[in-house]
Design a protein around this nucleic acid. Structure first.
Lengths: 191, 191
DNA sequence: GCGTCGATGTCAGTCACTGACATCGACAGG
DNA sequence: CCTGTCGATGTCAGTGACTGACATCGACGC
């Protein structure tokens, strides 16, 4: 063991979410986050590239999960169905974290800088998704479009899932949202 | 006339795009932009909220244009067709600005902060689009999904239009992209 | 016991951004 | 013609995010 308490990174992430919730993102200084975690400002920046990134530690894992699920989908599956498999995998990750997701989302959506960061994480996810589809033999431009559509479903589905009055399985909400997209793009009625 | 050269705002925007292109966004200080425009750093921040915003002056006009076109679409038009009308209006705005759009896009996509800002502008556009669809009687959640799908088409279509070898009307590229989305969401073949 | 290593601390510096106050030509009213 | 207001700009001092250089010190291998 080192000279210090373990899990510095996790302590920083927890302290940041607390403080951003309590008094708002802008009203929180990095020095305060570090102090609450028992560390210094400089150490914060050794763990996280900036003040926003501390809320997005899990995004890389989520991306890998989705990409792997897309790659693992049966060869016969249509592009949109491979994407659906990715959404299922993502849903599994969030299954027992709805309360956490809700708290975090409340913070992210009330601050423009954090929202921007969320959006670029989703753009990165979209690019990775497009690459995974391309590896399945889909033309690049079509793959990008399919990926963007998948992210659109994810965004709307996530929003529906997080704000729903009664708790429902995220996978089910995602499938509904995907069905709505299909309905809406074919000119049919979705709701 | 005032004591100063007119069009301070435009001069700042031009100077910023030049400097960001020449030496990169991060290597450019706001003081340098202001100096090239014959102004001071403080004045820059009176015209633009931050160093990124100076490249996004037209986004509000674009949003209004699209929202108005959606509102003006025939009542009988399906949601997705109202969105298509919005994309047509957007295409008209860019008709004679392909070179400018290309230069600007090159800068925006090579810097993460600028890319983030672009994404949140598109998110704002998506929200406005959803609201316009909602005003047409579409259920809120369906409106959001349709709007997100429309933005996905816009993103991919814009990318195709800007990077295409031969110049083609943006409206045509957008309609192709929308057709591809429809094909892909119904499991058909798009390319 | 000793030297290396890795996580942290300390400190000084740059730059984005802000608030308070000063400047000064244009313009309106007298 | 004088004068007071106004709006765009300038000046200056400050805060806070973020960085580079260097110091510290327990763990661990030898």
């Amino acid at each position: 063991m080192g000279r210090w308490e373990p899990n510095a990174r996790e302590r920083l992430a927890a302290a940041a979410l607390e403080l951003y919730s309590e008094r708002g993102y802008e009203q929180t200084t990095v020095a305060e986050i570090a102090r609450r975690a028992g560390l210094t400002e400089r150490t914060f920046f050794r763990h996280y590239a900036d003040k926003r990134e501390v809320l997005f530690d899990g995004s890389h894992a989520l991306q890998n999960l989705i990409v792997d699920a897309v790659a693992a989908a049966p060869k016969s599956a249509a592009p949109i169905d491979a994407v659906a498999a990715g959404l299922d995998a993502a849903s599994a990750m969030f299954a027992d974290r709805r309360e956490f997701a809700r708290r975090r989302q409340a913070v992210v959506l009330t601050n423009a800088e954090l929202h921007e960061r969320e959006l670029i994480k989703l753009a990165s996810l979209s690019a990775a998704l497009a690459a995974a589809l391309h590896r399945r033999g889909i033309a690049e431009s079509t793959a990008s479009l399919t990926a963007e559509a998948g992210i659109a479903v994810f965004k709307v589905g996530f929003e529906r899932w997080v704000t729903a009055a009664e708790e429902r399985p995220m996978a089910q909400v995602m499938r509904e949202s995907l069905a709505d997209l299909k309905a809406v793009t074919t000119g049919g009625d979705a709701g």
